[in-house]
């Protein structure tokens, strides 16, 4: 049977992709951020996941406002990265696991989550930056991927409570899959940041640190916030915390914290990193 071995949360800011391309790992601005990742990669080397379910939000590459699904699950043999318009060099495609994707889709819909299935899905920096951080050596990367895209662009966004429940349903779906596979779930984005408006540059360290703590043992307390609360407390784009809640829901009741890091600022963002192992 398939098993969720754990989860990782990480920022997915495009500037990180740029810094990776320029190999700024020792640069004083970037070092405190990149130094958080060797421990994550060591954990991945230990647990050796076969599949990564990558929970992210599309930032206007695959989806436009003409059609904006709330929850989408990729069901493709591979996922292409494309030009996002600002100079990040597109990366080679990411292999999928369409058989597990369709199992997820069947299971989620039976579980009353009416998601949008996507046999073609271009993945943007929200997906590619975490993949580059966690598996920098593409040649050695064997992990297959399933993108789960959540609407954080067009309000109304799904509530934190709903996202937590979706995560729990993803957990049930994986556990009911017949093949012996080890699955890791990535919750990407966040933490607090706001790009738009007179409030641009808003970062809330106290809120971010509280989230990093509560998501381990008391994720329900975070699921009680509304989207409006998250925008107020974490900034307009800090609402990406809902992606972390999906990850956390998928891991089940008991988890142990393996590693964490927090650094301000990366670009306009409080960058949080967390590795949680399933009990």
């Amino acid at each position: 049977m398939a098993k969720i071995v754990g989860g990782v949360t990480t920022s997915h800011i495009p500037a990180i992709g740029n810094a990776i391309a320029k190999e700024l790992f020792e640069d004083p601005y970037w070092k405190p951020f990149f130094d958080g990742y060797p421990a994550v990669r060591a954990w991945l080397d230990k647990v050796k996941p076969d599949v990564a379910i990558v929970v992210y939000n599309d930032h206007g590459l695959n989806f436009f406002l003409d059609k904006m699904p709330t929850f989408s699950v990729g069901a493709a043999f591979e996922y292409e990265n494309r030009d996002e318009g600002w100079g990040l060099q597109p990366l080679p495609p990411y292999p999928g696991d369409p058989e597990l994707s369709w199992h997820l889709i069947e299971s989620l819909v039976a579980d009353e989550f009416d998601i949008c299935s996507c046999q073609e899905m271009a993945v943007d920096h929200g997906f590619t930056v975490p993949m580059s951080l966690l598996w920098p050596d593409r040649a050695a990367r064997t992990v297959k991927t399933i993108p789960v895209a959540v609407n954080t662009v067009q309000h109304p966004l799904p509530t934190p409570a709903r996202c937590f429940k979706l995560g729990q349903a993803i957990g049930r779906a994986v556990e009911s899959y017949g093949k012996d596979l080890k699955v890791v779930v990535l919750g990407t984005g966040g933490l607090s940041h706001q790009l738009d408006g007179e409030r641009a540059g808003f970062i809330n360290k106290a809120f971010d640190l509280m989230c990093l703590e509560k998501i381990v043992d008391e994720p329900e307390t975070l699921a009680r916030y509304s989207i409006h609360d998250l925008v107020r407390l974490a900034g307009a784009q800090g609402a990406e915390l809902i992606l972390w809640l999906i990850m956390r829901g998928a891991l089940g009741d008991k988890v142990s914290k393996v590693h964490s890091n927090y650094h301000i600022p990366i670009s306009n963002t409080g960058a949080g990193l967390l590795v949680l192992e399933s009990a």
């Binding site: 067009q154 309000h155 738009d196 408006g197 007179e198 409030r199 409006h228 925008v231 307009a236």
Partner: peptide, 9 residues
């Protein structure tokens, strides 16, 4: 929320 536009319908 001051300085913030919620991108709604």
């Amino acid at each position: 929320i001051p300085g913030t536009v919620i991108f709604d319908g």
